[in-house]
């Protein structure tokens, strides 16, 4: 629908994006950096219970890696990594993972999200699972938002 209404910004954006892809430095550097960003995201995710970090920050960093990849190399490449449908399902999975810890502790006879119910190291294991759920949900939500907006002014000639 947007195509008829605003052809101008569409074509401008398209050429801008192509230009971005043709920049050698950007392309090479982003290919180098993206794996490091993803690795750092995992570090922040799993180091969260010893130091600063946690699911939200890790999710955002992970999404930033994927978004950078998509910005420089094209939305289609990012979509090949994680499609809209997968992202949506992962959002639900993340939230449900979080909720299931709460339900589990309730079933085991403690209050909602009382990790002590999960056993001797409950506090430790509980928070890791919860943060994992948060991380998955945040990362996939961010990527889903990016994909929704990135496609707005696409035309057939884009790819």
């Amino acid at each position: 629908m947007s195509r008829e209404l605003t052809p101008q910004p569409g074509s401008r954006r398209r050429s801008a994006r192509r230009a971005l892809r043709e920049k050698l430095v950007l392309r090479v550097m982003s290919r180098l950096i993206v794996p490091l960003i993803l690795l750092f995201a995992l570090y922040v995710q799993f180091h969260g219970d010893y130091g600063p970090g946690g699911g939200f920050q890790a999710g955002v960093i992970l999404a930033a890696g994927v978004i950078l990849y998509g910005l420089v190399l094209g939305v289609e490449r990012a979509r090949a990594v994680i499609s809209e449908k997968v992202a949506e399902i992962l959002i639900a999975v993340g939230v449900l993972l979080y909720g299931s810890v709460g339900i589990a502790s309730m079933v085991l006879g403690k209050n909602y999200l009382d990790y002590d119910a999960l056993g001797e190291h409950g506090q430790h294991e509980g928070i890791i699972i919860v943060e994992l759920g948060v991380g998955i949900a945040v990362a996939s939500a961010m990527i889903r938002i990016y994909l929704a907006f990135a496609d707005l002014y696409r035309t057939e000639a884009d790819e």
């Binding site: 449908k85 949506e88 399902i89 959002i91 639900a92 999975v93 939230v95 449900l96 909720g99 709460g102 339900i103 309730m106 209050n111 909602y112």
Partner: peptide, 23 residues
């Protein structure tokens, strides 16, 4: 005794279930 938590948790967790079912 868990009813206060369930009051919020039931609709809150039903939402992602709806979201994941896609039907």
């Amino acid at each position: 005794e868990h009813l206060p938590a369930l009051q919020v948790v039931v609709p809150l967790l039903a939402a992602p279930v709806c979201f994941a079912l896609r039907n």
